[in-house]
Design a protein around this nucleic acid. Structure first.
Length: 273
DNA sequence: CCGGAGACCTGATAGC
DNA sequence: TGCTATCAGGTCTCCG
């Protein structure tokens, strides 16, 4: 469920736990995207302080600890990090709990596509999850020229190109559709047939859509909330996503829903070329 | 290497 | 009401 803006919002909402000491860790024993190593997790965490929490590789979260290990997290489709009082009843699908003196951080994930992994500090950047990822769309390496060059190497549809985390990280199904709408580019167009002018528009649209969504604290379309349970409001500003049959806010044509690589895409067939 | 299909999971909702 | 089918904001692996 969470894409870059939602993960960024969660990370920001977690900053108050930086500096606190982890007193204990508990796990459900169920496998997430990969198994959670409870022993390793306990040895890495208990007695350490959280020194830094940051978003990395688009949708991943890294927590640096005062020991020799760090945590690499991913929320998958349904994952949620929740800071709560220990007295709050634990909801179903609570898979990892980090206990602190005055509260606990819970990793709750019904579908279990999320990830909680321990890496040595000097190894996580080379982990199988991170080593092969593409560029940060909000970082300095993502330029119009970079995008133009990358597009030329790919015969995929531009929608699938945008979802491919090996090229650009952070976009998911909502923001890929929204960025293509903002740039007036059809999701069906082959990446290598996008004009230079379209590529420049797309570059700007990707940044704009993500920055606006961050400013609005994410899209709470279904059940996404930050670590304090607060919803975002970017869903009020979606132009095409989940709006099949509604009228295009730019030209008035009905918005169309198609399936690409088994996932829904929403676009305006009249003003996206 | 590329691209597509299927797999991994549970829960909400639509349709009969 | 109750059943079944479909879909969901992600990523990985397998296959041609």
């Amino acid at each position: 469920m969470p894409e870059l803006p939602e993960v960024e919002t969660v990370v920001r909402s977690l900053q108050p736990i930086v500096g606190r000491t982890i007193e204990g860790v508990e796990t459900s024993g169920l496998k997430l995207r990969s198994p959670v190593d409870a022993d390793l997790l306990g040895r890495a965490c208990v007695g350490t302080q959280i020194e830094r929490i940051a978003r990395i590789g688009g949708k991943y979260i890294v927590a640096e600890l005062s020991g020799t290990e760090c945590l690499l997290l991913h929320l998958g489709m349904s994952g949620r990090l929740k800071w709560t009082a220990p007295s709050e009843p634990r909801p179903p699908h609570t898979h990892v709990v980090w206990r602190f003196s005055d509260g606990e951080l819970r990793f709750i994930d019904p579908r279990r596509f999320g990830l909680v992994k321990v890496y040595r500090n000097n190894e996580f950047l080379h982990s199988p999850e991170l080593f092969n990822l593409g560029v940060e769309p909000l970082g300095k390496f993502f330029s119009p020229e970079f995008l133009i060059e990358e597009l030329g190497y790919s015969s995929m549809s531009i929608k699938q190109f945008l979802l491919d985390q090996h090229r650009i990280v952070g976009l998911g199904n909502i923001y890929a559709s929204e960025a293509l709408f903002a740039a007036r580019v059809s999701p069906r167009r082959r990446a290598d047939r996008i004009t230079r002018a379209q590529a420049r528009a797309l570059h700007d649209a990707i940044r704009l859509v993500l920055e606006q969504a961050i400013a609005r604290r994410g899209t709470s379309f279904r059940d996404y909330v930050d670590a304090n349970g607060a919803s975002g409001n970017n869903q009020e500003f979606l132009q095409v996503y989940d709006r099949a049959g509604r009228l295009c806010p730019r030209c008035g044509a009905p918005i169309r829903q198609i399936v690409q690589a088994a996932r829904s895409t929403f676009y305006c067939p009249r003003c996206q070329r």
